[in-house]
Design a protein around this nucleic acid. Structure first.
Lengths: 138, 138
DNA sequence: GTCATTGCAAATGCTTTGCAGTGCC
DNA sequence: GGCACTGCAAAGCATTTGCAATGAC
């Protein structure tokens, strides 16, 4: 994670307490938080941090390519700190939990040229939906 | 499209002018509109239709499985009238246009049991991102 | 005639923004 | 010490909701 702060400083970031805390929260458990959850956890480490700053910081991390934005359901976006390794998502439709999965094969290859309509393809997102064990029980 | 209205009446829908108009807009050009765009087009056909009714109607169509909700970018959701045929999406990151594509193979099969974490998988979404010819030029 | 459906307007949830003050480099 | 960054509060957008009036069956 200090790798992350390192990279950010190299790109001219001012290293503030707020930014450090956001990075720290993202680096913690490897789950996919909403901006609000990140803010809540950041507040525990730095009580004065504001929601706006969390949003700003997340936005910057996204445009720097350090964090991925995941639009799961049209509600709050979730943030995925694992931007540096290709992976896909498994989402529980009950509780909204997201897990990273790493299927074999290159999903990009599955779109034949004839179906590309002249587009320049830059990436694929694959999202599996279902119910996690807990929600399946309920 | 009258198929659609037919099916809906069979399920106990009251056939109002508003609902007919929403169905008509979805059946028109085969693009993927936002709720607001659908409302705008609906107003041309029926000036008194309210935004709330469009939202309600869309929500019902979605839960009936007649229309698909597509969360592309965390902004407005888009609605895909083509829910009855499995397909995937190709999204232009420039202008937000969505095209349907139909790659070969079953993407569901690509997630090995070992990666399912006990989830009951109900579906996969595959989204290709890139630039359409027009946006690539600009 | 009944009751689902509509329209309005206000409320909500998430996110962004304007601006004065703060503190990193 | 300059200027990027922060915090606050207010604005913004997409969507939902409460409730009385309406109209499909």
């Amino acid at each position: 994670m200090s790798d992350l702060l390192e990279r950010l400083r190299d790109r001219g970031w001012r290293l503030t307490a707020q930014r450090r805390v956001v990075a720290q929260v993202l680096d913690g458990d490897h789950v996919h938080y909403t901006a609000d959850e990140i803010h809540a956890r950041a507040v525990e480490l730095l009580p004065e941090i504001s929601r706006a700053t969390v949003y700003n910081t997340l936005g910057e991390l996204v445009s720097l390519g350090e964090v991925l934005e995941v639009s799961t359901d049209g509600r709050a976006k979730r943030y995925d700190p694992n931007a540096r390794h290709a992976h896909q998502h498994l989402i529980c439709e009950g509780c909204g939990t997201i897990r990273d999965v790493h299927p074999a094969g290159d999903p990009l290859g599955s779109l034949p040229a004839a179906e590309r309509y002249g587009f320049t393809i830059s990436g694929v997102e694959v999202t599996y939906r279902g119910l996690c064990p807990d929600c399946a029980k309920a």
